[in-house]
Computed example of a mutant assay.
Amino acid sequence: MTKSSVKAVMVVNTKSRSGQRSFERARARFAELDYLVDAHAVENPEQLTQTVTTALQSDPEILIIGGGDGTISCLVDLIVGKGVRLGVLPLGTANSFSRSLGIPLDVDGAVDVIVNGAPRRIDLGMIGDDYFANAAAIGLSPKIAETVPHLAKRWFGRAGYLSWAALQFVRFKPFTLIVGSGAEAQRLKVVEVRISNGPFHGGTELVESAKLDSGRIVIQAVKGPLKRRLIHNWAASALRLKTRHADVVEFSGKALEIATEPPLPISIDGEVLAKTPTIAKVAPGVIEVMAPRD
């Protein structure tokens, strides 16, 4: 089958930080490569689910989603079991899912992966019955996600996001994490919990043991009770210092019961969509995504 005969649909969240400009560039680049794409720009994020649902009725071979990590996780549920491959245009602030796959963060590079890359079968994480692509979090990240003004991310990118994060950090308090149940439950004081299907959180590689095709979910807890441990862990991870491992405890498995005291919200790839207690688990090999050949 020639590239030009591949049946592809592209749905782009043009309210994402670089959405509209990137949508036009992606369409132009696909045309240059003689790659036929039925393209849809969606300005209202509330219409994304319906747009993708309608697009899937045409039985495409590839569904290309353009947006940030939250957009991808919101829509990935719709392709499980549909036999359609996922293509990714990373248009968000952190683009952790694309980083985990090695997809270039520029439009032309991402388009090249969709056209010339190879399908890779990967796992999805799950919180309860909700699939997610890359990572979920408990602690500071949901607090930021619940309160950050959308325009701060769109206009100022990671700098605006980090400035807002610093403000929320001042108000944040450590909490107790409980993994498992009954007599075997483990309790520890923590400042952040990362529920990981992939290694990147917030654009930084934090959970190196998490892989998109490992068949296991990883829970990484940054130990408390001092909030400065979280700052140290983020900085040490960004600088690739060996001391980053001293701040964390990890659990892994196919399914893990988790609770917190007090009950707390859970952000899933940047969107607050659940709360504790819950079960974090992995759905092994449930979708295919276009990834770099190497």
Score class of each variant (00 low, 15 high):
residue 96 S to Q: 07
residue 100 S to Y: 07
residue 107 V to R: 14
residue 113 V to G: 03
residue 114 I to N: 05
residue 114 I to Y: 04
residue 117 G to V: 10
residue 118 A to R: 07
residue 120 R to V: 07
residue 121 R to I: 06
residue 123 D to V: 03
residue 123 D to G: 06
residue 125 G to V: 04
residue 127 I to Y: 01
residue 129 D to V: 06
residue 131 Y to A: 12
residue 131 Y to C: 10
residue 131 Y to S: 05
residue 133 A to F: 08
residue 137 A to D: 00
residue 143 K to Q: 14
residue 145 A to L: 10
residue 148 V to T: 11
residue 150 H to M: 14
residue 150 H to C: 09
residue 153 K to N: 15
residue 154 R to H: 10
residue 155 W to G: 02
residue 156 F to N: 11
residue 157 G to F: 12
residue 158 R to F: 13
residue 158 R to L: 14
residue 161 Y to G: 00
residue 162 L to I: 15
residue 167 L to Q: 15
residue 167 L to V: 15
residue 168 Q to M: 12
residue 170 V to Y: 14
residue 172 F to E: 02
residue 172 F to W: 02
residue 176 T to E: 15
residue 178 I to Y: 01
residue 179 V to H: 05
residue 182 G to D: 04
residue 184 E to V: 14
residue 185 A to I: 07
residue 185 A to L: 09
residue 187 R to D: 03
residue 188 L to E: 11
residue 189 K to P: 04
residue 190 V to D: 01
residue 191 V to T: 06
residue 192 E to R: 00
residue 192 E to G: 01
residue 195 I to F: 04
residue 195 I to T: 00
residue 196 S to T: 02
residue 198 G to R: 00
residue 199 P to C: 06
residue 200 F to Y: 08
residue 203 G to N: 04
residue 206 L to D: 02
residue 209 S to R: 09
residue 210 A to K: 01
residue 210 A to F: 05
residue 215 G to I: 03
residue 217 I to A: 09
residue 218 V to Q: 00
residue 220 Q to T: 15
residue 224 G to V: 08
residue 226 L to E: 05
residue 226 L to Y: 05
residue 227 K to D: 02
